[in-house]
Each structure stands twice: as structure tokens, then as C-alpha cells.
Simulated assay, not measured.
Amino acid sequence: MKTRLPILLVTFFMAYCSYAQEQTATVELPLTEQCKSLLNKKLDFLIDGSFQDEKSLQREIARLKECGIDDYDVSFFGRMSSMSAMLRKMTKEKQLEQLTFQDLFTEIEKMKATEAFEQMKKITQLSETLATRVGSLKNWNEDIKIFQELGASKNVIAQVFEYLESHPQNSKTYQEILESFKK
């Protein structure tokens, strides 16, 4: 089960990245021939009718894995809100019909180079780790560090610890444990 970021958080991030992009340089990595070939192709999916929903958008963004983006990037930049923000930026200098995967890749790399993106990615990945990890006193010393890094309150951490102490054979994930507190 994947944790979804609220639309407002994504929108705020995209606005921040627009500001921070001018101050951030991207690092050039050696690109494969397949990547270079893809980067030269136009973003036809934007104009040929195949851009229907986030699944189709993620499928197109996933093509850039050849150029080094990862699953988190596909998920994040494959949101309609992310694509809309990038398109607003990219179409200031070019017509929609002129955009290439290079333009998209460059925009993604600029955003990925910001501190805000790195922090958001780290928090999301830590949250997903806890959401899928079975709570256990055996791993508590490692897991408490994740809770603390995510900014969990001392009260929540204490509740989770008490739950684990009273359920030594626990089979619930941390997400399930936390959800049980809401009931």
C-alpha cells in the first residue's frame, strides 16, 4: 500500500521548485545511447490523444528510467499536478508541439536537484518503510529512529512502544498499529 502525498503538498513543492530551479545546477551524467535517442523524441503523447490519465502519464515518464530516473520519480512526476506545473514552465519557451523528452527530463532533473525534493523523497520513503514494516520490539531500536526522523510526537512513539510490549507476537505493520489508535 503506497502512501499518497496530499495535492497541496505537491503543489507547494512545485511552486518552491520553480523558484529554486534558477539557483540549482544539474549534474550531467553519462547517458546511454537508448536514453539519448529517447531524449530527442517529441512528447507526442501530449498531443496525440494518448495522454488520458495518470497511468498513461506514468507510463510515459517511466520511459525516462533509461536515463536514470527511479520509481519514486515516476510516481511523483507522473501526477497530473506535477505534469501541469512542468508544462507551464516548459511552454513558456516552446510550443507544446515542439517539446521533447529532453525538455521533460531537464525539468525533472532541475526539480530533483532541489533540497525540498530530496527531503520530500526521504520522508516519503521513510513513511512507506514504516507503513509496510511489521512492528516488533526486536527491531524497535531501529524503528524508533525512523519515527523520530519523521517527527512523530513522543506520545505517539510511547503508544506504539506500549502496544508492542503488550503484543509481543504482533503481526501488524506500523501503519495498522497507528490506524488502530484512531478507533
Rank of each mutant, 00 (worst) to 15 (best):
Q98N: 13
K112G: 07
M111V: 12
S84K: 03
E107A: 15
S81W: 01
M90Q: 04
T106W: 03
I123R: 15
K110E: 00
M111P: 01
Q125S: 00
T129Y: 15
K145E: 13
Q98A: 15
Q148N: 14
E128W: 00
K89E: 15
L126R: 14
Q119C: 10
A131S: 15
D71N: 11
L126A: 05
T114R: 07
L150R: 09
T106G: 08
A152N: 08
D143T: 05
S82H: 05
Q119D: 06
V134C: 02
D143P: 02
K145I: 14
G151S: 01
R79K: 02
Y72G: 08
M111W: 03
K112L: 01
V134M: 02
R88W: 05
S81T: 04
Q125H: 03
V134D: 04
L99W: 02
F105A: 02
T100S: 03
S82L: 07
L130P: 10
D103H: 12
Q102G: 10
K89M: 13
I146V: 15
Y72R: 04
M111C: 13
I123V: 13
I144S: 02
S84H: 06
V74K: 08
M83E: 09
L99Y: 02
L137R: 01
Q125W: 05
K145Y: 06
D103Y: 03
T114H: 10
S75H: 08
D143A: 01
S136N: 04
S136Y: 08
A85L: 05
K112T: 09
M120A: 06
N139A: 13
K89W: 14
S75K: 06
I144K: 09
E109I: 12
D73A: 15
Q102L: 09
T106L: 13
T124A: 12
K138Y: 11
L96D: 08
E107H: 14
F147E: 09
F117Y: 12
S81P: 02
D103Q: 08
D71H: 10
E93A: 14
F77M: 13
L137N: 11
E107D: 15
